[in-house]
Computed example of a mutant assay.
Amino acid sequence: MATKRWTCSRTTVYNIGYHLIWCPKYRRKVLEEHIQNRLRELLLEKAYEIGITIEKMEVLPDHVHLFVKSPPTASPHWIVQQLKGYSSRILRQEFPELKSRLPTLWTRSYYCESVGHISQKSVEKYIEQQKNV
């Protein structure tokens, strides 16, 4: 889990973070201890594969919270799609009880909020001050 504020690529310096939340279908409490542990492993594995960093993760019985940092080329929708799709496929293969309890593991919906070091007010003030320079 990264600690630097900025990430640099060849052409970009960025600090993009998202708070993501999603739930199992019908908000069922199916993410019990053995499934929780495997889900954590799968999410970290997929995050590494797609080039994002999971800064903080909390898996509760009926929902998942993530704070991720990503490059500007990865949209929040794509990130959630990758994480949910991969984890659902593997978990349903490894834990057949999930197939019998739910038609799909995850709901279609999710929550996303961008998180940054600088507040909206600070950015607005900075942009407003630019016309006086």
Rank of each mutant, 00 (worst) to 15 (best):
G116Q: 06
D62I: 06
I50C: 08
L39A: 07
L43I: 15
E97S: 12
L102E: 04
I118G: 02
W22I: 09
L44D: 10
S9F: 06
V64D: 03
L42N: 10
I54M: 10
L91M: 06
I50E: 06
V64W: 03
V30I: 14
E94N: 09
K69Y: 06
R40C: 13
L98V: 05
K84M: 01
G51L: 05
S70K: 11
K84P: 01
P72S: 07
S75Y: 03
Y110E: 04
N37I: 04
T73S: 15
T12Y: 12
F95T: 02
L105P: 00
E41S: 12
Q81S: 13
L43D: 05
Y126A: 14
S100I: 08
V64K: 04
W22A: 09
Y111H: 09
H77W: 00
V59S: 05
L43V: 15
S114Y: 01
L44E: 13
K121M: 01
R27T: 10
Y111D: 01
V123P: 03
R101A: 12
K99Q: 10
L31C: 06
L44N: 14
P103F: 03
I79T: 05
E94G: 04
H19Y: 14
Y126Q: 13
R40D: 12
Q93D: 12
I54Q: 10
W22P: 07
S75D: 05
E49P: 00
V64A: 05
P71E: 13
K99A: 00
S122N: 12
H77L: 04
I54E: 06
V59L: 14
V115L: 12
F67N: 04
R10P: 00
P24F: 06
